[in-house]
Design a protein around this nucleic acid. Sequence first.
DNA 1: GTTGGCACTCTTTCTTTCCGAGTGCTAATA
DNA 2: TATTAGCACTCGGAAAGAAAGAGTGCCAAC
Lengths: 360, 360
Amino acid sequence: MALSERKKRILAAVVDAYIETAEPVGSKAIAQTAGLGCSSATIRNELAELAAMGYLEQPHTSAGRVPTAMGYRLYVNELMEKQKFTLEESEDLNRRLNQKLQELDDTIGDVSRLASQLTNYPAMALTTREAVTIIRFDLIYVDANTFIIVVMLSDHTVRNKLVRLPISVDEKMIRKLATLFNANFTHLSEDAITPVLISSTERSVDDTMGITAVISSFAIDVLSSSAAPAAFVSGENRLLNQPEFRDPDKAHRLMSYLSGGGQLLPESTFPDSNEVRVLIGPENVAEELKDSSVVIASYDAGDNTRGLIGVVGPTRMDYSAVAAKLRFLADGLSRRLGGGEAPPEGMHNKLIIKGDINDE
Amino acid sequence: MALSERKKRILAAVVDAYIETAEPVGSKAIAQTAGLGCSSATIRNELAELAAMGYLEQPHTSAGRVPTAMGYRLYVNELMEKQKFTLEESEDLNRRLNQKLQELDDTIGDVSRLASQLTNYPAMALTTREAVTIIRFDLIYVDANTFIIVVMLSDHTVRNKLVRLPISVDEKMIRKLATLFNANFTHLSEDAITPVLISSTERSVDDTMGITAVISSFAIDVLSSSAAPAAFVSGENRLLNQPEFRDPDKAHRLMSYLSGGGQLLPESTFPDSNEVRVLIGPENVAEELKDSSVVIASYDAGDNTRGLIGVVGPTRMDYSAVAAKLRFLADGLSRRLGGGEAPPEGMHNKLIIKGDINDE
DNA sequence: GTTGGCACTCTTTCTTTCCGAGTGCTAATA
DNA sequence: TATTAGCACTCGGAAAGAAAGAGTGCCAAC
């Protein structure tokens, strides 16, 4: 059932005003600001109908109207003005981003901080990790008691560890071990590195000092830590900027949940690239998020890894601005971290916003 | 001017009660709980004197008494029962700590999270970094377009970077560069790596592809990032547990300050090992902390690096418990990360608490 | 279909009132 | 001299009541 053009404009006006003020919106205010030539009485009639349809609700009789989740959904899907940055804004953002990206350590911690700063909401970042394997071992002999393990992973990241031994070992042994590990321990999953494999390797180099064990356990460490998707939340405190979180208990509940981190975003919410997903209030799976909204973008972190940036705020969030900024950030990151096919410079204008999975 | 024994006991009782309830403490309550055989009237007289001396204050006439910063100071220095863990608590802590320390990535992020969990207050961790230098370069040839830089620092940490080149390079070149960098770039401070040095190196290996520049800039990166003291704050949200931060604005101010991180703890507040430093309210340098308290312990992170753990809370903080827990944690970390001389197992009982620098 | 007008509703805010915890002081007591 | 019991007094905070105001719903007129 399609809404009349006027209803749409009124709904949009309500959402816009509510986003700005966090106060229920009255008919008079709309009549004045929305600039459609009709009086507040007419607006009142329309508002009543919109409320009956479920797009708006009243906190109580004789209060203004507030958008429902359904109202926001429609707004986000159809009504929202896709935010285009002006040239200056765009340049300013670019400047800030470039500067930050310079320093960016590629860690999700930085990404999340950046997103939070940019949007002024709490933000989180996480990366999927494909199952990685070790594709190369190097052992660097430092001195008789010290060597460095360097492993290269299938996602082309490199990890290292300095090992100090209580006993001395000669360079030949280290070299032998390196050859052996490259032959037998590469391209294995974590559980393929079995005690049997380890002890047979141990025997074959005549290692009575447990060096093999040290290297293997490092390998296992690396593989298991790479398997766990890493998540990082930052800027929780910005929640307190929002009037809906003036209640410390409410704020605390959500902040604790956010600090918990991991369980935050079920895999299913992973959006395609160039799409910003918006989850409004009850559309969220997690109980703690049922009256907040989440905006998610993903970026290409190179080597088949995708990163995800999410921002959490009240349902009365400035979806347009946040979505645009996340898209901008995600594009910037993809360009910087991603493989080859960087999106063209103006990408962030062709912003595509898609709703949750069930929507449509 | 020494306080009578009874005054001390009364002051201690006030602080204890206030720590527990966060409500001003009245004479009657003390008469009942503190168990010194005298009536509330007597206590009232004593309270009035303690107030006159500046150890206590009244929010308003006809309210109970609340400790002043000076009162807390005396309490912390002299009156506080040094918390000894019972055997069970101690074992429980040990168990939790061991489990965590297993996973501990040695990052200050983990340390800070651990401290916050343990104490239920926001916590921060930071490490001093001595000026480090690179003591060893290794270049690992992977394929014609790829090599790995591995540098070992004077603090015995190791950093690496995977470099992919647009052009191909042979193994001999890589080896030559490694030798050269080891000869000319080790033991240098950041600013000793000058453009002059770089370009002369470039010429001497006939490097027209900028590989030298890549390696040098990695070296500079590593040195400069190692020079900045790293800080990490976590558990900001736990502030909201405290009744004194029920005011969202107040909470927000402090949380923002904490999230800012770095400027948190001027070097001068670095305590000696085996000492827990307590900074009460106005004793803090930072304006934002003037009505909060900070408890700080430091630990030995090995290789001449000291780490610092701090906890922030209301002045009405459970100093005894927090100090004991931090000491416990710091000892655990020293034992695990530090060089040789681990403190004996029972160390945390011989807790030394020292005040701020001006105190004494 | 739109509009002005008006009575009605319900929240918010401001006063006012009331209660009680806790004090300070005085006079009696050991 | 130190302690105690008693009592008037002082505030702050909760509860209750009153007033203000924003916004609605509906009706009658356009």
